[in-house]
Nucleic acid binder design. Structure first.
Length: 807
RNA sequence: GCCGGGCUGGCGGAAUAGGUAGACGCACGGGACUUAAAAUCCCGGAGACUCAGGUCUGUGCGGGUUCGAGUCCCGCGCCCGGCACCA
C-alpha cells in the first residue's frame, strides 16, 4: 500500500473530472433537474477565504449527492466583480479595473478548482463583462419603461472635506470613514427603484417558499408593514381656517387615542412650513431649527434620540377633529419626512417619544387609556386597557375603540385606514466608475430618454483617472466625448447619464443567466428558464437577507410580471450558514491579524482535508471559530480510510457484522446532508471507519464507505475507487440506499431506572413485551438488590429504550 | 429600547413528539512498537466522595410540571448578531 499523498492525487482527479465533463449541466436531459446555488463571490485581491469555503463545500457536497442520486445537476459559479475595492486598487496602482478583475478572477477560479469544487465552469458569468451587463442594462430599461425606475431628490451623506457622497457604510460615528471630518445630509438627484410597489407581494409570497424562519422574519420586519389610519387636522390661524378645507394629514396606528392628541409635530422637511411661512410669527427660529436639522446626518439624528428638540409654530394651530379643540404645532426632527405623512398627532400619555417631548416642553399629558400612570411614563400597552376621557369611546377596550373611531372618521370624511411599510425605495446609483452605466440620455428637449435596446450594451469608456470628482459627480462626467451624444428621439445634442449602478444590480439576476449563459438574444432563453428555475437550493450568508435576497426577489417578480420568467419566486429553498470567526472568536480581518487562509491548509494537508475540516468544525448554521488544531483530526481520518485498504478482501458480499452499521450510516449521512448537519454526517463516517478498521472488510463494504465519503472528500475517494470500486468515475456512481429494517438492532440495551435514576442496563431482543422487560429488569442483580423482594408499585416501559420502576 | 440566536467536560461540539447527557474530533494521561524520538496502534477520563460494590452532584441561575427535564412552563442573568425616533 502506497502512502496517502493528496498532492499527487488531487490534481489528477480535478483533471479527469474536467476531461469527462462530469460537472457540465445539460439543458436537455431525461433526468430530473436540480439547481443548487451559492452566492457568487466578489473576486477580491486576497483570494478565496474561509468564509467562502464553508458554503461552497457544503453545497458542492449537496450537488455531488444529487448527481449520484440521478439528477441533472446545475451547480454554477460566477463573479460579482463590479465594486469599490477593485476601483480603489486600480486608482492606487494605475491599472485598469478590468485588468485587476481579470487577474483576480483567474486566482479565484484556480483556487476553486484546487478545492475540488464541482462547479460548471463552462457557465461562468462575470457581471463586468459587457455581454453580461448588457442584460443588466436591459432590465433597467424595462424598469424605467414601467415607471419603476425614477429620479428624485434624495438626502445623501456628504463629506464636507472629501466633497463626495458616501454610502451609509462609509459613515462611521457620524464622520467620514476616510478623513474623519463632518458628514452632513445634502439633497442630490438620485436614481431610485420602486421596490415599495412590490412590498406586499414580497411579504405575502414568503409563505410560498422554504426559508429558515429567522430569514423570513428578518425580511418581514424589514418590509415592516403597519396598519393604521390617516387623519386630517384642519389648520387655523387666529382662530380662522388658513384656507378653506385645508388640513394637515397625520398617520397613526393608534386612532383610538385621538382624544389624547394634545399637539402635533411636523418634520423639519415638511412642505407646510414653506407654504405657511408667512403666518408663522417666529419663522426665523423655525428656519434656524430646520437648517440645524439639515446639517445633522441621519446618524446624529438617531444617536441623539433621547434628547428631544423642537420649536413651536407661533400663529399656526390645528384642530383635533374629534373634539374640535385647537392644539399647537411643533417642528421636531424626531418626526421623519420619509415615513407616513411627515406629520404626527402627539399623544404623550401613550407614546414614549411624545411623552419625553411633552415633558421637556411642559405640554399637557392626557390619559385616554387606563392601565398605567401617565404622570410617570407613557402607557403603551394595546392588549389591555379601557378608554377614558374619550367621549363616545369611553369604556371600550382598545381594539374595539380602534374600530369605532376608524369608522367614525371615515363616515365624517376626516380619515381612512392606511397601510404603511418601513421598506424604502432603493437608491440605485453610485457616483463611481466601476459599475454598469445607466443607459439613459438627458435631452434638453425630450427630458430623460431611454437608450434604444439596439445600442446595448452601453460600455464604459476608457478614462485616465477613476477618481471621484470634487463635485460628487461620477468620473464618467469628465469624459466629454462619451457624455455628449445625440438624443435618439429628436436628434438634438444631449448628454448621457453619468451615474453607474450599485453593486447589487448584477447580483439581482445572475442566477437566471446561469441557465443560458452564452445567449446573445436574451438574458436567457424561455426554455432554459422554464427548465431550470426555480433554484432548488440557494445557500448564502445571513448578512444578505434584507439586501441581496430581497432585491433579487424584487427583480425576479418584475421579470415574472413582464413575462421573462415563469415563476413568481426565484428560490424554492434558502439556507444560511454561520460565519467563520478567527481563532480569537473575532471576525477575521487583516487588521486583527486573525485571518486563516484555506489555501495554506490545501497546500499542507490537501483539499480533502480542508473540505472535511470546514464541515466538521461545527453547526453549519452557527458562527464558529477557526482552529488550526482541528485540521489534524480530519487529515488523520483520511489516513485511516486510506489504511483500511490493508485489511480488505475482494469480496462482493457485505460483512455480516457490519451490515447493520452500514445501513445506519447510509441513512444518517443521507438525512444529515438534507438537514445541513454535515458535522454529524462526517462523525458517522468516522464511526464507520473506526468499526471497519477493527476487522477484515470486503470490497463491497469499502465501496459503500467511499460512496458516502465522496461528496465531502472526493479526491481520495476517486483514487481508492479505481482500486477497489466497480469501474468508472465514482462521481457518477449511484448513491447507496438503505433498508430501514436493517438499521434496527436485533438486540437492544435497555436502561433500567429505579424512581427515575439509572441503576442498570439489560440486553433484550428488540420489541420485547412489557412484562418480559419488567421481568428481566427485576432479574438483574443490581435491581434485585434494590428491590429486596418487593414488587414495583408502578412501572413505565418505553419500548426498546428504558424501563422505570417505582417501589 | 425592539427583534432574532445562544449559554452542555480543558476545547469544538453530539443528544429535543421529555426517556441511559457528553457521540465524533482536538488537547491531555497511561501503555505497546522503537536504541530513541516522530508517526501509528491500544486503553483512560464530567466532578466530588468511596468500605472499590457503589453513592451523591452535574447541561448559565432560581422556581415549577412529570415516574423521568439539557429538552416543556414561569422568573432572572450573561454573550453574540440585526434594526434602531417607522408614530
Amino acid at each position: 500500500m502506497s502512502r496517502y499523498d493528496p498532492k499527487s492525487i488531487e490534481k489528477k482527479w480535478q483533471g479527469k473530472w474536467e476531461e469527462a465533463r462530469v460537472f457540465a449541466a445539460s439543458n436537455r436531459s431525461e433526468k430530473p433537474k436540480y439547481y443548487a446555488l451559492v452566492e457568487f463571490p466578489y473576486p477580491s485581491g486576497a483570494g478565496l477565504h474561509c468564509g467562502h469555503t464553508r458554503p461552497y463545500t457544503a453545497l458542492d457536497a449537496v450537488a455531488r449527492v444529487r448527481r449520484m442520486q440521478g439528477y441533472n445537476v446545475l451547480f454554477p459559479i460566477g463573479w460579482d466583480a463590479f465594486g469599490l475595492p477593485t476601483e480603489n486598487y486600480a486608482i492606487a496602482n494605475k491599472i485598469h479595473p478590468a485588468e485587476v478583475t481579470r487577474r483576480n478572477i483567474a486566482v479565484f477560479r484556480s483556487q476553486a478548482k484546487a478545492l475540488g469544487y464541482g462547479f460548471d465552469y463552462s457557465r461562468e458569468v462575470d457581471t463586468t463583462a459587457p455581454e453580461y451587463y448588457k442584460w443588466t442594462q436591459w432590465i433597467f430599461l424595462k424598469l424605467f419603461e414601467k415607471g419603476l425606475a425614477y429620479k428624485t431628490d434624495m438626502p445623501v451623506n456628504w463629506c464636507v472635506s472629501c466633497k463626495c457622497v458616501l454610502a451609509n457604510e462609509e459613515v462611521v460615528d457620524g464622520g467620514c470613514e476616510r478623513c474623519g471630518s463632518e458628514v452632513v445630509r445634502r439633497d442630490k438627484s438620485q436614481w431610485m427603484l420602486r421596490i415599495t410597489a412590490y412590498a406586499q407581494r414580497l411579504l405575502d409570497d414568503l409563505d410560498t417558499v422554504d426559508y429558515p424562519s429567522r430569514v423570513k422574519l428578518s425580511q418581514k420586519n424589514w418590509i415592516g408593514r403597519s396598519e393604521g389610519t390617516e387623519v386630517d387636522f384642519p389648520v387655523v390661524s387666529g382662530g380662522r381656517p388658513v384656507e378653506p378645507g385645508y388640513a394637515l394629514r397625520v398617520y397613526t396606528t393608534r386612532p383610538d387615542t385621538l382624544f389624547g392628541a394634545t399637539y402635533m409635530v411636523v418634520s423639519p422637511e415638511h412642505p407646510m412650513l414653506d407654504t405657511y411661512r408667512g403666518l408663522i410669527r417666529n419663522a426665523g427660529a423655525v428656519d434656524a431649527y430646520r437648517a440645524g436639522a439639515a446639517r445633522k446626518s441621519d446618524f446624529e439624528r438617531g444617536e441623539l434620540n433621547k434628547d428631544k428638540s423642537g420649536v413651536r409654530l407661533d400663529g399656526v394651530q390645528v384642530i383635533n377633529p374629534v373634539n374640535n379643540r385647537e392644539i399647537p404645532v411643533f417642528v421636531s426632527d424626531y418626526v421623519l419626512m420619509s415615513y407616513g405623512t411627515g406629520a404626527i398627532m402627539a399623544v404623550p400619555g401613550h407614546d414614549e417619544r411624545d411623552w419625553a417631548f411633552a415633558r421637556k416642553f411642559g405640554l399637557p399629558v392626557v390619559e385616554v387609556v387606563r392601565g398605567g400612570d401617565v404622570r410617570l411614563a407613557a402607557y403603551t400597552d394595546t392588549e389591555t386597557g379601557v378608554m377614558v376621557n374619550s367621549g363616545f369611546l369611553d369604556g371600550l377596550e382598545v381594539a374595539e375603540a380602534k374600530r369605532r373611531i376608524t369608522a367614525w372618521l371615515a363616515e365624517k370624511g376626516l380619515g381612512q385606514s392606511k397601510v404603511n411599510y418601513k421598506l424604502r425605495d432603493w437608491v440605485f446609483a453610485r457616483q463611481r466608475y466601476w459599475g454598469e452605466p445607466i443607459p439613459i440620455i438627458h435631452c434638453p428637449e425630450c427630458g430623460m430618454v431611454p437608450l434604444p435596446e439596439s445600442e446595448l450594451p452601453l460600455t464604459l469608456p476608457e478614462v485616465d483617472s477613476y477618481e471621484p470628482t470634487d463635485t460628487g459627480e461620477s468620473p464618467l462626467s469628465a469624459i466629454r466625448g462619451w457624455v455628449e451624444t445625440i438624443c435618439p428621439v429628436c436628434g438634438s445634442g444631449a448628454e448621457r447619464e453619468t451615474d453607474t449602478m450599485p453593486q447589487w444590480a448584477g447580483s439581482s439576476w445572475y442566477f437566471l443567466r446561469y441557465c443560458d449563459p452564452h445567449n446573445q438574444k436574451a438574458l436567457a432563453s424561455q426554455e432554459s428558464l422554464k427548465y431550470w428555475m426555480a433554484v432548488d437550493w440557494y445557500n448564502g450568508g445571513m448578512e444578505h437577507t434584507t439586501l441581496h435576497l430581497l432585491y433579487s426577489r424584487f427583480w425576479h417578480k418584475f421579470l415574472y410580471d413582464i413575462g421573462v420568467t415563469a415563476m413568481p419566486e426565484p428560490y424554492q429553498k434558502r439556507t444560511a450558514h454561520g460565519i467563520i470567526l478567527g481563532p480569537d472568536g473575532e471576525k477575521m480581518s487583516k487588521s486583527a491579524g486573525n485571518v486563516a487562509n484555506p489555501m495554506d491548509v490545501v497546500d499542507q494537508y490537501g483539499a480533502d482535508t480542508m473540505r472535511l475540516v470546514i464541515l466538521f468544525i461545527g453547526d453549519f448554521e452557527k458562527a464558529v471559530s477557526w482552529s488550526d488544531k482541528a485540521v489534524v483530526g480530519s487529515r488523520r481520518f483520511l489516513e485511516r480510510v486510506w489504511a483500511l485498504q490493508d485489511g480488505l478482501h475482494p469480496g462482493k458480499a457485505v460483512t455480516p457484522a457490519l451490515e447493520g452499521l452500514l445501513h445506519k450510516t447510509v441513512k444518517k449521512v443521507t438525512e444529515d446532508v438534507e438537514n445541513l448537519k454535515f458535522n454529524t454526517a462526517i462523525a458517522a463516517l468516522m464511526t464507520l471507519c473506526n468499526e471497519m478498521s477493527g476487522q477484515k472488510c470486503s470490497w463491497a463494504d469499502y465501496q459503500t464507505l467511499l460512496k458516502l465519503l465522496n461528496p465531502f472528500a472526493p479526491h481520495i475517494c476517486e483514487e481508492l475507487w479505481t482500486k477497489y470500486g466497480a469501474g468508472g468515475l465514482l462521481a457518477l456512481q449511484t448513491w447507496p440506499s438503505y433498508d430501514p429494517a436493517k438499521t434496527l438492532d436485533e438486540t437492544v440495551e435497555m436502561a433500567v431506572q429505579v424512581a427515575g435514576k439509572l441503576r442498570s442496563t439489560v440486553a433484550l431482543p428488540r420489541g420485547s413485551a412489557e412484562a418480559d422487560v419488567i421481568a428481566a429488569a427485576l432479574a438483574d442483580a443490581r435491581i434485585a438488590a434494590i428491590a429486596q423482594g418487593r414488587e414495583p408499585k408502578r412501572s413505565i416501559v418505553v419500548p426498546d429504550k428504558l424501563v422505570n420502576l417505582i417501589f
